[in-house]
Design a binder for these strands. Structure first.
Length: 291
DNA sequence: GATGCGTGGGA
DNA sequence: TTCCCAAGCAT
């Protein structure tokens, strides 16, 4: 019966899959790795143009490794979580220095690269190298929670039970195809907000739907305002550095956030994180950049 | 295990 | 308008 579920989802993927550039033939492991890091907590629609620009500019890890880290941050644009740009740059240097310029192919090697956790290591090993891993992202967790466990949403943190279930579903043949198919189902049909059960290839065997789509009764899943936070302040400051064509005088940073205490804390945080660099003359710039 | 970390679009 | 959340990771 697990086999029937898998087959229905993989068949659906055959006709419903999006034509995403990092899925096309000829895209190497570097392109896959770049896409996976950009897609961490970021919608596909916003990643698309940045990925295209990035791959044209830096088609290999060595090309990116030759740049100062600040250039990666600059071209990250407004994708958010800019530490990922630093992580990708550090990946490029580690790949160049320690892996002969080639993105490593095993889960364990990938997992040791900066900013690569369980999901991303499994995804790259699967999608770039055909490996067989449980690729457990938020989409897959939601699909399995509904179809198998009969609950609207998965637990807040990944549990051992979820992992065991995901591993039990890995097919012996073409595991990456199953992994990308079930992810795609979660992204397009079995969505968080308004699932399109009418279009779902496994609606007839979905435990949650068969139970009448009972509402989630677990602990509150959210609650986090953004306005006024250090995160927003950091974002404002970094945007100034990104868009500047030279070292930025302190007053230009002061202008974008009125609370001086919070502003200084945020700026110190950016410097500590390696996202900003103070110069001897009191100006600031993206780390290592010249222009 | 709980927190901090950006951003923008859709409901 | 406000709220939710989108292929997570590190501490």
């Amino acid at each position: 019966m697990a086999g029937a579920l898998r087959e229905a989802i993989v068949d659906w993927y055959g006709v419903a899959a999006r034509d995403l550039p990092w899925r096309r033939a000829g895209v190497g492991a570097w392109g896959v790795l770049v896409s996976e890091i950009m897609l961490q907590q970021t919608p596909v629609a916003r990643v698309l143009p940045v990925w295209e620009d990035w791959m044209e500019r830096w088609p290999t890890p060595a090309a990116l490794a030759d740049e100062p880290p600040g250039e990666a941050v600059r071209h990250w644009g407004r994708l958010g979580y800019p530490r990922r740009a630093l992580n990708l740059h550090a990946c490029a240097r580690a790949i160049t220095d320690d892996h002969d310029g080639k993105v490593p192919s095993t889960y364990d090697e990938l997992r040791r690269l900066p900013g690569i956790g369980d999901y991303t290591a499994a995804a790259v090993a699967s999608f770039a190298y055909g490996g067989s891993h449980a690729v457990l992202d938020t989409n897959v967790r939601r699909v399995l929670a509904r179809a198998v466990r009969g609950e609207e949403f998965p637990p807040k943190a990944t549990t051992a039970a979820e992992r065991t279930l995901a591993e039990s579903l890995i097919p012996e043949v073409d595991a990456p195809r199953w992994a990308v198919a079930v992810m795609e189902l979660g992204a397009l049909v079995c969505t968080a907000r308004a699932p399109r059960c009418a279009d779902c290839p496994v609606a007839g065997e979905c435990a949650w739907r068969l139970a009448g789509r009972p509402a989630y009764d677990g602990p509150a899943r959210r609650g986090q305002t953004y306005a006024g936070t250090d995160r927003q302040c950091r974002g404002r400051l970094l945007a100034v550095l990104r868009e500047a064509h030279g070292p930025v005088p302190k007053p230009a940073l002061d202008a974008v956030w009125s609370d001086a205490v919070q502003r200084e804390r945020a700026l110190d945080g950016l410097v500590a994180d390696g996202l900003a660099e103070p110069l001897a003359d009191g100006t600031y710039r993206l780390p290592g950049t010249v222009i």
